[in-house]
Amino acid sequence: MTQLTLSKAINAGLRRALEVDEKVVLMGEDIGKLGGVFRVTDGLQADFGPNRVIDAPLAESGMLGTAIGLAYRGYRPVVEIQFDGFIFPAFNQIITQISKMHARTRGAVKLPITIRVPFGGGIGSVEHHSESPEAYFAHTPGLRVVSCSNSQDAYTMIQQAIASDDPVLFFEPKRRYWSKGEVDQLAETEQPSMERAQVVNSGTDVTLVTYGPLVMTAKDAALAAADDGVSVEVIDLRSLSPIDFDTVAASVRKTGRLVITHEAQQFLGLGAEIAASITERCFDYLEAAPARVTGFDVPYPAAKLEEHYLPNLDRMLDAVDRVLGRRNSLSDWSHAS
C-alpha cells in the first residue's frame, strides 16, 4: 500500500498500462515534457519516448479521429482532453464514429479507445474549464462512461478502461487530483470492476447516489447527518454508463429514500435517469419522491459565482431533510406557477 494523490494514482495506472501492453499509446496536448497541465502524465514521455506518449497537434477532432485509425490498426490509444470544455471539437468523431463502430461492423471492429477528461468545477477557473459533460456521452449508446472518485479507483479503473475492448470516457474529478489515498498497486485484478457501483458509506434512512468529485462531499454529508441521527447510505456509481442499477435499487429498497447529486446541470442529467429508473423499479418501496441536488440549468458561471452553482454539503443535507419530510428550505416555499 502506498499513499498517492489521485493524479499520481492515474499516472501509476497509465505507467502500468504502458508497461504491460506495447500497443498502448498516449496522445494529448502538452502531455509530454510538461506532463499535462495537471501533470497526470508526468515523466511518462521521458520513460516511454515520444512515440508512445505523443504531444499531439492542437486539434481534438484530429486526436480522436486518428485514434480511430490507430485502433483499427491494433493500438489502444489513450487520449487526454485538456479540460472538459475542449472535448466538443471531437464530439463528431466520438458520437458518429467511435460509439457506433462496433455495432455497425457487427462486432468486427473494436475501438478500445480511452478518452481521459478532467471534469467538474470548484477550482476557480475561467470558462470552459469547469464543466460536466458526461450526460452527452452517457446518452449515446456504444460508449462506456466511468468516473473515479479516489486514488485506488483512479489507479485500477484507468487500467480497466484501457484494457476494455470498448471505447471508454474516463472522467477525472479535477478538483480531487490532489487528494491523497491508499493505493494497492499489486491487486488491481482483485479490485471491483469499473462497471460496479460501490457503497462507500452504509446507512439505513436515505440513499445518496453520486460519482466523481462529489463522492467526498457526500461522505462528509453522511457524517454530518449521522451527528443529527440520520443514517445515510452513500453510493459511488463509478460507471455512469451502463449504470449498476442493481446496487442502487438494493439500497433504495432498504432505505426507501433516494437523493442523487451531481455537478452537471439537472435537465436530462444522470439524476433524471436514476430517479426515473429507480422509481420504475422500486416504486412500492419509496417513501418520498426522489430528490436531485445538481448544478442549475444555466451555463457554468464565472469563478466568483461557482459556489452558487455547485452542489455542496448543505444542499445535500437539505435534500436529505426533504426526502425525510423534515423541515427544509422548501417547507415554506410556494411558487406561483
Partner: peptide, 15 residues
Amino acid sequence: WLERQKSQYSAYLDM
C-alpha cells in the same frame, strides 16, 4: 422552469 429553480435556490439561501 428556470424561474422555479431560481426561486427555490433563493428560498435555500434564505435559510
